[in-house]
Amino acid sequence: MIRRKFITDLSLMTLAGFASNNLLGSNVEDYKDVIIGHNSHRYKVDLNWGALDSKQFPVNDCHEMVQDSQGRIVLLTNHTQNNVIIYDKKGELIEVWGTEYPGAHGLTLNVEDGQDILYIADNQRHEIIKTTIDGKLIKKFPCPDIKEYKEDNQYIPTETAIANNGDVYVADGYGLQHILHYNSDGQLLNVFGGRGDGPEHFDNAHGICIDNRSGEETLLITARTQNKLKRFSMDGQLINVIDLPGAYICRPVIHGDDLYMATIWSGDGKPNTGFVSILDKNDILISAPGGSTPTYTDGQLQSMYQTMKIFQHPHDVCIDDDENLYVAQWNSGKSYPIKLYRV
């Protein structure tokens, strides 16, 4: 929290007239920056971050974002002119690559032998593509050869998660709702989840991540249409279900002790009602930038909804090493990501 302390000091200095060069401008009183979020996680909003010439570097849906080991922000879009757009944290363009991912949807970064490796879930190619950070193909994970999948196009993967031992978990979030567990060689070890009415089943198993905050790895998987987050053991046994009524959560992202999730719709699922959900390590919703104040009554979260028209359809969040957030949006007028600065 050094950064925030510094900023506080900076403001005080300016108010006290220490900064002769008038660092914060002439009239601090004029500032009415919107601040969104609750409790410890509050943010200012930069809608212009990462905006590029849309003819030269277009986006369709901005589906997912990760930060790489060099501190760069990597965006995945389903525009085949440049499926991957790499920015610095200020939003300046560093490089683009990728023209072969029409259904570019899920983006996971894993460090393997000291190298940043990307796993792209392409829901039009019906496969996972493993690449180097600069886009060289390493391996493909095609539609699994099991009886449940009669045709390749039944397999519509949305996300991957990579365990410490290199095992790869794939969520077939727009397909048959299975969670597929492979070893790092691509050998299928287990299949669980799937459609159904049981708590271990999914409706839109959209995102998956590995949670090792407790010291032991577990899987967190979103059941987006059900407004639930489901925790499984690494061998596919359901551990518990976290209810988030009114929150259509896309992918769980762990940063430090907290869990962040873009929430594409809220309430009864009307368009343009998204916000961001932030849960602490006890699975309690502590902040909802753009949404209503998380309120628990008798241990039950009250139904969440959007309160300000800032986000349309948040689809993923990336948290950088400054604790700032980047929000990639689906179907939001081909707009570039929004950056939230933690205050």
Partner: peptide
């Protein structure tokens, strides 16, 4: 940074 200003933000419809 041109932070988003309050007067540019619309409230959502009430529930």
């Amino acid at each position: 940074i041109d932070f988003l200003q309050e007067n540019n933000v619309q409230l959502a419809k009430p529930q």
